[in-house]
Design a protein around this nucleic acid. Structure first.
Lengths: 144, 144
DNA sequence: ATTATTCCTACCTTTATAGTAGGATATACT
DNA sequence: AGTATATCCTACTATAAAGGTAGGAATAAT
């Protein structure tokens, strides 16, 4: 029930990239320092987001990472799924055949409902939304 | 992000006990057969619920398990937490000091919101609610 | 060339999950 | 008293996932 550090670090890194949108590529070293994480581990996280088409990279000196699309066009759920895996509290939510007890299970409706509310939140927000919420709360003072 | 079998089996077992409320104690063997689970494993699950005060037991021949309270007085969240652990997607939801990046984290609001909607669902329902939903859907034909 | 970066592969450690095994203890019924 | 049926208790095992680390190759700007 706890999010993996993969997902936590990944989303935080995406927020950095969102704030940096349309500027120079942001190297992992910078992100890693700001977030207090090792570059090596962040590499393993960001490659997931790259394969998912959410970020793109440029190699070599002055290289780094950028968002592949404007932050208001990137939904949280599309970042979440590659990092944490699909939102599936129980398999039967998407595949009735996955559980032999599906027919007479009295709990499946509950799990489905919980699953749905999680997805609703993750679908309803973009990276841009999170940036704006944060600005409204007066964070981000270390960035200009 | 996936529920443990502990939680899934545990809740299903509780549904059996809810349907059996104020009848004779229900032995694990019966539940295990209905659910297609080993008695041995179910023992490990039910002891968690017993320690949490949700079920009580009677030993010996004709013994078994019963709900400790009427099913309409048992909230799902009180069953969920001992089985799956507290609903805490990220520690900072309950303990700001748990993350050194709390002050400038742009994602914490999102995690808090997801956490809240999960808890809301689990708090809003009792075992009795699930039984009634199920009856309304015409399941439970094997029980009378 | 040198430096800074991404990219790739392999390895390691720790923790949690999902069990199984064997037997001790308690209770009802005959 | 004895047997069958339960819960209860302790210990063990196997597998997978999480959370990294290490070393170096490939690429690009200066």
């Amino acid at each position: 029930m706890r999010l993996s550090t993969r997902t936590r670090y990944g989303l935080r890194a995406l927020m950095e990239l969102a704030c940096n949108y349309e500027k120079k590529p942001l190297p992992l070293k910078t992100i890693a320092q700001r977030q207090g994480v090792s570059v090596k581990y962040l590499e393993r996280v960001i490659v997931i987001l790259k394969n998912a088409g959410i970020v793109k990279s440029s190699r070599g000196s002055l290289g780094g990472y950028m968002l592949a699309k404007p932050p208001d066009q990137i939904k949280i759920i599309d970042c979440f799924r590659p990092l944490e895996g699909p939102v599936v509290l129980v398999d039967c939510v998407y595949d009735e055949g996955s559980c032999s007890r599906f027919a007479d299970c009295m709990v499946k409706g509950l799990w489905k409902q919980v699953n749905d509310v999680i997805e609703d939140v993750l679908k309803s927000k973009t990276l841009q939304d999170l940036v704006e919420n944060t600005k409204r709360e007066g964070i981000l003072d270390y960035r200009i």
